[in-house]
Design a protein around this nucleic acid. Sequence first.
RNA 1: GGCUCGUUGGUCAAGCGGUCAAGACGCCGCCCUCUCACGGCGGAAACAGGGGUUCGAUUCCCCUACGAGCUGCCA
Length: 486
Amino acid sequence: MKIRTRYAPSPTGKMHVGNLRSALYEYLIAKHSGGDFLLRIEDTDQERLVEGATEIIYRTLDRAGLHHDEGPDKDGGFGPYVQSERMRTGMYLRYAKELVEKGEAYYCFCDKQRLEGLKSEVVEGKEVMIYDKHCLGLSPQEVEAKLAAGLPYVIRQNNPQEGQTSFVDELYGEIVVDNAQLDDMILIKSDGFPTYNFANVVDDYTMGITHVVRGNEYLSSSPKYVRLYQAFGWEVPVYVHLPLITDENHKKLSKRSGHSSFEDLLEQGFLPEAIVNYIALLGWSPADNREIFSLEELVRDFDYTRISKSPAVFDMAKLRWMNGEYLKAMDGDVFFSLARPYLEQALGGELDLEKISAMVKTRIEVWQDIEEMVAFFAELPDYDLDMYAHKKMKTTRESSLALLREVLPLLEAQEDYSHEGLSGFLQAFAQEKGYKNGYVMWPIRTALSGRQTTPAGATEILEVLGREEGLRRIRLGIERLALGQD
RNA sequence: GGCUCGUUGGUCAAGCGGUCAAGACGCCGCCCUCUCACGGCGGAAACAGGGGUUCGAUUCCCCUACGAGCUGCCA
């Protein structure tokens, strides 16, 4: 049997990493076995729809490389793939009526007031209500009359008060609940739209979904869905409920709390491959110890039985590390082409950006790190003269001044300002004088950069800065040190 | 409140009756070195608690605690 999975988001905003991970696992489970991954838009809640949200879903999936085999834009013969369009075919109501006829569902005409009156317990500020099956007692004639009168109605599932319902989740094992716990959830809303609870079952069945892969939040309502399948006489699909992804406070990720969406992370300078790789490991681990996976490798190695059951905290620090790994492994030219906009923004087009790009490559974790790191090339920052003193280099302000004065004429005489030429001659100089390399390089680099740490050594910086600017900065350093001494 | 699920270092996470309880991120130290970074080496750091079962429990069962999810005409 060919596995078919689906990602079924409701278009209500951005996709955060939890949403994306669901999509990823659904994709991986299907693709690992050569199956199909479908996209279905669940827009049955007309009030929560957000303009443009569907486009975000397409964009995100595309950027993440999770290409669907079927979807609203790719008909595979199981369409429509948008629930509002499916509703127009009348299918949900038809199926609901079938259930009514079987006694597995019933019309309910209860209005808001009556329902409000049913709310009894108040727990943590939330009122808890269990529907009392009031309308189940209506005779067929009464129902007909109310329907004919055009009264608004909903259709509710009719769950038994006794017995148990169970199903097997691939990860969590057998889940058993007392039927008395199952409330008569609404299948068809008064606006004619199906609820998620009903639509997901009808759609998953009619679209041939074999493996229902979804967030853990559905685990406890799954018995109700299972009852629906059974009521229809449909085969229950394979269920794989995924553990939650939480923030550092162990709270479920949500847009409301300002948690990053996939697109936010891209803006923050993360690579889509790194994000995908990272979230793949949030709740799943391979049999070996590997951590770096391309999407193709994930497809090959993804064994969903190894998905864990406990929630995972989204750790930005590790994502940053992983992004850095991707950056380091990237081809130099590709890196440069991607880094270029950031380099240009920080430095303009004057300097040799390609050289600077190479310097920065092993030192950044996200693109945004570039700007701060290279700013000194464009403009010498104001710096504290104490920076010239470094215990390990054995330099002091005084020794630095002397060193720079000693080295300046030599640099003025130098023609070759290549990194190789400069380092060759400077090291020779150090050796001749019996200085350690650091003793001569530290003052020079400080004068050139005005910084304690730089993405390159003194001679590389000098090469990029060029003879004129380099000498200018060194002279300035001498001047300031001399002044500061008095 | 009820129901369901979960609980190995700060975080991810291996383990599936007998291990000195992996590995990774982060942190710390050392080496490399013209600073930083990379790279290399090393370190601190965990089985929530209590009962069982067993010759032997991180591993199986029960209870408690804690956490999470659901309990919507939201998904």
